[in-house]
Design a protein around this nucleic acid. Structure first.
Length: 560
RNA sequence: GCGCCCGUAGCUCAGUAGGAUAGAGCAUCGGUUUCCUAAACCGAGUGUCAGGGGUUCGAAUCCCUUCGGGCGCACCA
């Protein structure tokens, strides 16, 4: 149930009907009904909804916008139970003033939907895949991965609520140069720890984590890998280390509230021959040429800045080649929509990835890449430099230990992905009013407290159908009711625009209205009619806050 | 040099397919508790939406340009 969408639909239908009538009567000349907007005006005294259709039509109809608006208004047929008043205002807006009673239909719907409030009434039959984090298994999870995790998982929740069939996927980069280098580094450490002669590869993995992993490998294998040739030894060590790392990544992301449906290994694309096959297909279609012994994809045909190598002159395919095969594989699995969450440092990759899909015959608009800007950590007012070399890198595990999952997820999702994020560790830990996470959670805990209190006083929770909600007439109550009605529409917009930050913003708004209500009015009073109506209102707010918080992966505590 | 993203109140940021008088939180100052949790509420001030030009009935939003910040421009991923 989407109240706002429902009302907009009815208004649009009435306007479209009026326009058709006017055209038939030859009072208005136009070829097609334009793409106009029905929106909730910022100013309350501009009505509940406003349409800009008259201004948009003015040119073609060769008539003053206000005149058109008046003609439309005269020919509108709307149920008086829905619309109280229609006005022409400003430059030609049509303002709709709703019968205020409509808000009383909101709480019963919320109470009956419960956890499903905010979700689309039915599945839309479309499959969407969200791929996110996909961190290199050779290192720790850092703040970029953390933000990607929060954004990706929240987007998946939002799209699920919008009626999509959603799959979450992690792409494991377990092939290519970096894995070769990883294997060589592991081998060097293995030999070193066992007192054998070794040589560390140039720009190899020098971190303590590699040494720790090798120690575990020694516990597992002892020194018997010494008997193998180098290639087999590296393969053994790499396989062991990747298993460990992927398990670590899985566990950490679990702590962060994330569970994947699919873990997809890059190596399978090489083994299955898909990489080879997709390059051949591109070559057959004429999108591949050879230069300097390498094979190039003509990505400049698709608005890329330069062509891109897919097969090196040593015959080894590049990461890009594997990625083309990977994305083709996604579409072959039947996804209608494929979403990647990438760090902004990969933005140069977007055009050629979409180009490759287009070259293969897929509509590139079915691939969306959400680029997120970098995270800056602050502690004590100072930037925490993120450097592997100096060891000041903060891992996702440490972040969860320090500020908790709820605060971390809320902070990461609160900002638009394409905005730089300043993450204040001190603020995220504060149990005070400056911390927005607590503000929202506290609203939920407060309502739970009221409901507990009412039970303690043996007040029976009212039946919705026996309760007259029309006694809710205070401004704070009406504001709450209106805000509650917006939630499903907010989720829908967040999904359509891939804007997860809308949900934290919404829940903060709603929490603010709840706190304001709480400080002005009492729920538990001797006036049974009013008390019952307010109990139902509280229940509706509680459900909505919980659903919104859960959508971003944040708990809604019963007490604080 | 070329390309992408960003620039909105002292700070951190919203701003929904271009709409009406640009919003919120924090910080600052003042007030609220015999009452369901004061982790709350109420009140007060702040803007050349980086600058300039253009399109439009209308621009923070679209186009051009200048400045400032970030990131890309590998036979790395």
């Amino acid at each position: 149930m989407n109240f706002i969408e429902d009302i907009k639909g009815q208004l649009r239908e009435a306007i479209d009907e009026a326009l058709k009538t006017l055209r038939n009567n030859e009072k208005l000349v136009f070829s097609a009904i334009p793409d106009y907007v029905i929106e909730v005006p910022r100013e309350r005294n501009h009505g509940d909804f406003a349409a800009n259709v008259a201004m948009i039509m003015a040119r073609e109809a060769r008539m003053a916008p206000r005149k058109i608006a008046e003609l439309i208004t005269e020919h509108l047929s709307l149920k008086p139970s829905l619309v109280r008043k229609v006005e022409v205002a400003g430059a030609g807006f049509i303002n709709f003033y709703l019968n205020p009673d409509w808000v009383y239909s909101v709480p019963p719907v919320i109470l009956s939907m419960g956890d499903d409030f905010g979700r689309a009434a039915q599945k839309n039959g479309k499959k969407v895949q969200v791929e996110f984090v996909s961190a290199n298994p050779t290192g720790d999870l850092h703040m970029g991965n953390a933000r990607g995790g929060a954004i990706g998982d929240t987007l998946a929740n939002i799209l699920d609520a919008c009626g999509y069939e959603v799959e979450r996927e992690f792409y494991i980069n377990d092939a290519g140069n970096q894995i070769e280098l990883f294997g060589a580094s592991l081998e060097a450490r293995y030999l070193e720890l066992l007192g054998e002669p070794f040589s560390m590869p140039e720009s190899g993995y020098m971190g303590q984590d590699v040494i720790d992993t090798v120690k575990e490998a020694i516990d597992e294998f002892g020194d018997c890998l010494l008997e193998l040739n180098s290639e087999d030894r590296r393969r053994k060590l790499t396989g062991f280390a990747l298993d460990r790392r992927i398990e670590y990544i899985r566990k950490t992301l679990n702590r962060f509230g994330i569970e994947y449906d699919v873990w997809f290994a890059e190596s399978t694309l090489h083994e299955s021959g898909e990489v080879e096959a997709v390059i051949k297909e591109l070559a057959d279609k004429g999108y591949i040429y050879e230069m300097d012994g390498a094979k190039w994809f003509k990505s400049t045909l698709f608005k890329d800045e330069k062509d891109e190598v897919v097969i090196r002159n040593n015959g080894v395919p590049t990461y890009f080649a594997a990625d083309i095969a990977y994305h083709r594989n996604k579409f072959q699995r039947g996804f209608d929509w494929v979403i990647n969450v990438w760090g902004a440092d990969h933005h140069g990759h977007v055009a050629r990835m979409k180009g490759a899909m287009e070259a293969l015959g897929y509509d590139p608009d079915r691939l969306d890449v959400v680029l997120m800007q970098l995270v800056r950590l602050y502690r004590g007012g100072e930037i925490v430099r993120m450097s592997k070399r100096t060891g000041t890198l903060v891992t996702l595990d440490e972040l969860i230990d320090e500020v908790g999952k709820d605060a971390a997820r809320f902070f990461f999702v609160m900002r638009s992905p394409d905005s730089h994020l300043d993450f204040d560790l001190d603020l995220a830990k504060k149990e005070g009013q400056e911390n927005p996470v607590y503000y929202a959670q506290y609203a939920h805990a407060r309502i739970c407290s009221i409901l507990r209190q009412s039970r303690a006083q043996d007040i029976e929770f009212p039946r919705v159908e026996d309760t007259d909600l029309h006694v809710l007439k205070e401004p704070e109550e009406l504001e709450l009711l209106r805000k509650l009605a917006e939630f499903p529409e907010e989720v829908r917009i967040a999904g359509r625009t891939l804007a997860p930050q809308r949900i934290p913003h919404y829940v903060l708004d709603l929490a603010g209205l709840l706190h304001s209500f709480y400080n002005h009015h009492r729920v538990i009073t001797d006036d049974k009619k009013l008390r019952d109506a307010r109990l139902i209102l509280m229940q509706a707010v509680k459900i909505t806050i919980k659903n919104a918080l859960n959508m971003i992966g944040v708990n809604a505590p019963e007490r604080m």
